[in-house]
């Protein structure tokens, strides 16, 4: 097994993803297989190869810094789990 349970739990915390006790063994097993599989990349000789930044070598397009979006907060908040007076509600973060 190339990954340990502790490692996977650490990664899961970084990803803000709860992996349940019933899922952890299977997750460690399958992630290890994936990591072993992609490890074959280390065999490739990539000396002096510039990593790909864009498949068509295109540059990121920029736009003028002007306001183009209109306020659609009320419509967007219809999909929010909990809102109040236009605000998104979350659990208390300041004691």
């Amino acid at each position: 097994m190339s990954l340990e349970k502790d490692q996977v739990q650490h990664i899961a915390m970084l990803a803000r993803l709860r992996v349940g006790d019933d899922e952890i063994a299977d997750t460690v097993d399958k992630l290890s297989r994936i990591v072993d599989f992609v490890d074959q990349l280390s065999q490739a000789d990539t000396t002096d190869v510039v990593p790909m930044a864009h498949p068509l070598d295109a540059a990121q397009r920029l736009r003028p810094d002007v306001v183009t979006e209109t306020d659609e907060r009320d419509e967007f908040q219809e999909n929010a789990p909990a809102v109040s007076d236009g605000f998104y509600l979350v659990p208390k973060v300041i004691e």
């Binding site: 990803a15 993803l17 994936i34 990349l41 190869v49 990593p51 790909m52």
Partner: peptide
């Protein structure tokens, strides 16, 4: 989806980025 998020988080995490992500983008160029 969880497996892919975890795989992605792993290959981008400190200490592994060069060995996996950067290497993959080099092979991708090849």
């Amino acid at each position: 989806v969880k497996r892919r998020i975890l795989t992605g988080t792993y290959v981008l995490s400190a200490g592994y980025y060069d060995a996996y992500y950067l290497k993959a983008q080099q092979v991708r160029q090849l």
